[in-house]
Design a protein around this nucleic acid. Sequence first.
DNA 1: GAGAATAGTTCGTTAGTCCCGGACTATCGA
DNA 2: TCGATAGTCCGGGACTAACGAACTATTCTC
Lengths: 109, 109
Amino acid sequence: MRPLPELAPETLTLASVLYALGDPLRLELVRRVAADPGMTCAPGGLKVPKSTLTNHWRILREAGVIRMAADGRFRRIWLRAEELENRFPGLLDTVLRLSADEPMGAAVP
Amino acid sequence: MRPLPELAPETLTLASVLYALGDPLRLELVRRVAADPGMTCAPGGLKVPKSTLTNHWRILREAGVIRMAADGRFRRIWLRAEELENRFPGLLDTVLRLSADEPMGAAVP
DNA sequence: GAGAATAGTTCGTTAGTCCCGGACTATCGA
DNA sequence: TCGATAGTCCGGGACTAACGAACTATTCTC
């Protein structure tokens, strides 16, 4: 399971993390990976083209929100929860808590 | 001082608020209006064209982050702190707290 | 092993968005 | 009334996002 390159926590900026989280689909992806660490790229029930998903995962990765590792044919995905907590204490928890009862979160097709 | 139209709190979405906050300049504007409620549109020390500022304030307004009111030649601006706190408890506080010690925040030209 | 199937990426096109200069509107002061 | 000031509107050029099609890499089946 070879890890893919990622940003050092010091280089993350608050604005880029907020930007990455500021999209309904990406918020849903983050919610899912929080609930299912190690999930693969293709979430069930989302009617979104693969190439679009790749792009959204890339934005989350480049903002430092998630980590990916190649595992055979798959990419496994995790939140970088600890590093985010160290760099931006309370942010991820707050967003996950709030997105949990966002009606839109579940309504993403 | 005639208030300008704004969104009802119920219609705000977490993603659009995060998106509005997910830009270094807008984050700086939010920081400033938090420190100086009732400020006008043109902040000192920012070398940004007026039309660009108008656009960023509009995005913050349409996301429900700020309120504007016409006051003669000026627009006065406030955070919608209470409404945001009711709708998204803890979010604004967390972002303001984190942006306070973001090196980038102060470095916006 | 050959060949099909699967997970994901890359590329190119199209559509939409952002930035910013310049023109415009509204208000205030002289 | 005239000029100055605060902010908005508009249009074009640069940039970005979405998505289908082609591609790569790995696994499964025979």
